[in-house]
């Protein structure tokens, strides 16, 4: 119940900034437009494998739309800020686990971003690029489930980045490492099968392909729902890591701020 309230509050707080986020969406549109234009330009001279030029535009358009659900989360779930201000001590004193509190807050944030950022972006791309939609209704359900798993994996990664601040005080640089890894290893811009061999192996050893690549291919009807099992396994592993890190953090707490 408490967690639902935290998520709802976080959602409502975001509603205050709808106009600002509308402007942000214009920026996101341009980014997606650039990526799609690059593939359209390449597609003019190449068949682009099993995707085809139109398929690649659909691939990057879907990926760009869901970035607000799987990448543009609160930096370290706000934990770094809490460490800097000393507020983390209060959060750890509360009779609810830190992990579930922060996850709940971020769930509200992601729900808002999905509704006010990802959906409008996808609708725009759908109309502008005349994107194909899945014909089988089950695909929508599997894609939604896969996106939920992706969002959860992204939350766990952000939590680990945030909690690292208890040791390093500043963990902003970890946020950028995660951002860079995501761009390269998640198949966000380049389908993983087109990466050089060694990079493909690196990517396969991380959760990043389960955050975007498989979800997008599932939506495009290029693969079935089996990879969701992989997402769930990564989710379990990252949850264990998050809870373990929280346990260690309780013994490491140093009050900063004044």
């Amino acid at each position: 119940m408490l967690f639902a309230v935290l998520a709802r509050k976080s959602f409502k707080r975001n509603l205050q900034y709808r106009m600002a986020h509308l402007l942000q969406n214009i920026g996101s549109l341009v980014f997606g437009f650039v990526y799609a234009s690059i593939w359209a330009g390449i597609g003019a001279a190449s068949p682009l494998g099993s995707y085809g030029p139109q398929g690649m535009v659909a691939y990057v358009a879907f990926n760009q739309s869901v970035l607000h659900i799987v990448l543009f989360l609160t930096n370290g779930l706000g934990l770094e800020q809490s460490v800097r201000t000393g507020h983390i001590s209060l959060e750890l004193m509360r009779p609810t686990p830190l992990f579930y509190q922060t996850v709940s807050r971020e769930v509200g944030n992601i729900a808002y971003q999905a509704l006010y950022k990802s959906v409008p972006l996808f609708i725009f791309y759908f109309l502008f690029f005349r994107l194909p939609l899945p014909s089988h209704p089950a695909v929508y359900g599997w894609t939604a489930l896969s996106l939920l798993c992706s969002a959860y994996l992204a939350i766990c990664l952000q939590y680990l980045i945030g909690i690292a601040a208890l040791w390093t005080t500043e963990s902003r640089w970890l946020f950028w490492v995660n951002y860079a890894c995501h761009l390269l290893l998640s198949g966000f811009f380049i389908p993983l099968e087109w990466l050089p061999g060694w990079l493909r192996h690196v990517s396969a050893a991380t959760p990043y392909p389960f955050i975007q690549y498989h979800t997008t291919r599932l939506f495009m009807g290029l693969e079935g729902p089996q990879p969701i099992i992989g997402s769930a396994l990564w989710g379990a592993l990252l949850t264990a890591l998050c809870l373990g890190a929280t346990r260690l953090a309780r013994r490491k707490l140093e009050i900063q701020g004044g």
């Binding site: 190449s46 950028w176 860079a180 761009l183 390269l184 087109w194 990466l195 050089p196």
Partner: peptide, 20 residues
């Protein structure tokens, strides 16, 4: 790292498909 990754995205594509 971020800048290198950003450019390597397009470099990987161009090395595979030749030119844009």
């Amino acid at each position: 790292v971020v800048n290198v990754v950003e450019f390597s995205l397009i470099a990987v594509v161009l090395s595979r498909f030749g030119s844009v």
